[in-house]
Design a protein around this nucleic acid. Structure first.
Lengths: 154, 154
DNA sequence: TTTTAACTGGACAAGCATGTCTTTTTATGA
DNA sequence: TCATAAAAAGACATGCTTGTCCAGTTAAAA
């Protein structure tokens, strides 16, 4: 039951630390300490995030990592695809490789809809939302992103 | 985006072959050929399925594997838990380990509901449904299991 | 009782995601 | 220009899932 990989989880938490504040670049090692992600591994993830245009990295003296856009303009879906190197292929829930709309396995319709729901949720949820979660330590009626939202109390 | 492991997919397809017909035990190697699962690996999976009471295995001359119950009495959820060795823990979609009902991450409510939906679908879908899928090669308004169903055309 | 045919169980190998280490490259400030 | 500080890059290590192999055990039939 794994939807987002460990690596994607790392990236999301690391970016949440990074979006905390300031226009000053942060070092990989500081983000690592703040997020709990192993520093050398985080360095790899940051490279992929930089390639995808989610962060900007600067080498040399006074270098570091900085968000390329505002937190509410970076969706979790984008982070996932940056880390995984592309969109998830639409795998059959049961792993049948001859399952398709034309030849639907018993869970095909259900899974097709669920997959789309998950995708939409990840698209609608931004770093700003995650930041709010990280910041508020208990109570608070948190600030949400500007995007339409599927994350009401429900 | 992996919900059921490769191994669980193997087990489901293998059991579908097994439920085809007859009260005669089938050999692991025949199930392997029919389902495309590597025979030595299938032998391991069969052991777990036997421990879980899904199949009965018989050693020695004229031994083999046989379903312990009728196909429509074996849910995919049961197969999954037999293969995985227990129920899936309720992991946070984003991998936050301090995410809970009391301290909900931005996707918590969504994922809680979706998880339950997936579980229900796997519980309501039985080997009989999979068998119908395997049997009908193209058209047919297939026979379903006796259970209530979330798998309408939609 | 012996032979044969099947599952059982344990050790082992391969592949992939995860994690680490070291060297190289780049940019800043003195 | 030179020293320094940081990311980039690539080789290397680890762990888990998947997959293989082989000797052991069991049961039926001759």
């Amino acid at each position: 039951m794994v939807v987002l990989s460990n690596s994607t989880g790392y990236a999301i938490r690391a970016l949440a630390c990074l979006s905390g504040l300031g226009c000053e670049p942060k070092f990989v090692r500081d983000i690592a300490k703040c997020s709990g992600v192993p520093a050398p591994y985080l360095a790899k993830l940051v490279q992929r995030l930089a390639e995808a245009g989610i962060v900007n990295s600067k080498r040399g003296y006074r270098g570091g990592i900085i968000l390329a856009r505002k937190p509410d303009e970076i969706s979790l879906l984008e982070i996932d695809e940056a880390v995984e190197g592309g969109a998830h292929p639409d795998r059959c829930l049961l792993g049948m490789d001859d399952c398709s709309d034309a030849r639907a396995c018993p869970t095909h319709a259900f899974w097709k809809k669920t997959r789309a729901d998950i995708r939409k949720t990840l698209l609608d949820t931004t770093l700003a939302d995650v930041l709010a979660f990280e910041t508020k330590k208990q109570a608070a009626t948190g600030s949400r992103s500007k995007k339409p939202s599927t994350k009401k109390p429900l």
